[in-house]
Design a protein around this nucleic acid. Structure first.
Lengths: 148, 148
DNA sequence: ATTGACTCTGACATTAATGTCACGGTCTAT
DNA sequence: ATAGACCGTGACATTAATGTCAGAGTCAAT
């Protein structure tokens, strides 16, 4: 079909670097192709499409995806990220009012999780010490039977 | 069919309290019926069956289930628990050699998880402080156009 | 006998991001 | 035009314990 149009598009893409295909974006960002498609389904990124259906990412998508991954690494969900991504891509984070409440909620969740883990850790530590002290006692009275 | 046998069995159960049905065990332990069946499938508990197929738990099963839940609350998996449950039900924990390595591995996992969460927490805290300080700066410049 | 409470099994759902596979279309260099 | 690399969609899997439902059988009291 319209070969000439496709060739023109290709020439532009190659010469000016305006767009990336999904594999190129994946390499540029470290996100897997699978993840890039997932981010799109979650409404975090909306690439254009070529006539043949290929995703066509603007070069700014590289920074956009890196930003998404930064927030994911903070433990935020794609849904939470979707709530302020549009703003933070255009402004400094501090000027996006949606960010702070999400951060503060996440901070509270983290504190609860840490507290839980630390409590379990203490319990476990005590039990280990208890076992070790019994072992020490028994070593000092050589002659008793260990069992599994 | 053999009504007399069933009646005899029932009489024994009621008079001596030798066995519990699953609902009774559930109430006695706080574990849901669903969970009790799950523990059985995971090999943690093996109730007898009546002629009609009902689970028939020995009264010691109450302590057994409470023990299982104690270990689950320490974050151990049913598979790990299965590895030493038999021993700890008959001996003191300290005499079961399978326990300590599991505890130590779990302790290490906990330390890693806590470390990760604390790291994320610090990052988040910094970002929150950064946003708050920007907000404060802007408030104090109310009406001025100066910028540093 | 009937009823209501209890039990049985088996199956599907839950959470969230990612991996992986199958099958088929597109692009590009030869 | 053909091969090989790339891309598309859709589906299933992953983890672990638990919830929930459906359909059917059992028990006990009337």
């Amino acid at each position: 079909m319209s070969r000439s149009i496709i060739k023109l598009r290709s020439a532009i893409r190659l010469k000016e670097g305006w767009t990336l295909k999904i594999g190129e974006l994946s390499k540029a960002t470290g996100a897997s192709i699978r993840s890039l498609r997932y981010y799109e389904k979650q409404g975090l990124i909306a690439p254009a499409r070529t006539e043949s259906g290929y995703r066509e990412y603007h070069k700014f998508a590289v920074e956009q995806v890196k930003t998404i991954r930064l927030y994911l690494n903070l433990g935020l969900s794609t849904e939470q990220i979707a709530g302020f991504l549009h703003c933070v891509l255009m402004n400094k984070e501090a000027f996006c009012n949606e960010v702070l409440p999400v951060y503060q909620q996440k901070l509270q969740e983290l504190d609860e999780q840490i507290q839980t883990l630390v409590r379990i850790r203490s319990n476990l530590e005590e039990r280990i010490q208890s076992i070790l002290s019994v072992r020490t006692d028994n070593e000092s009275m050589e002659g008793t039977n260990d069992e599994s």
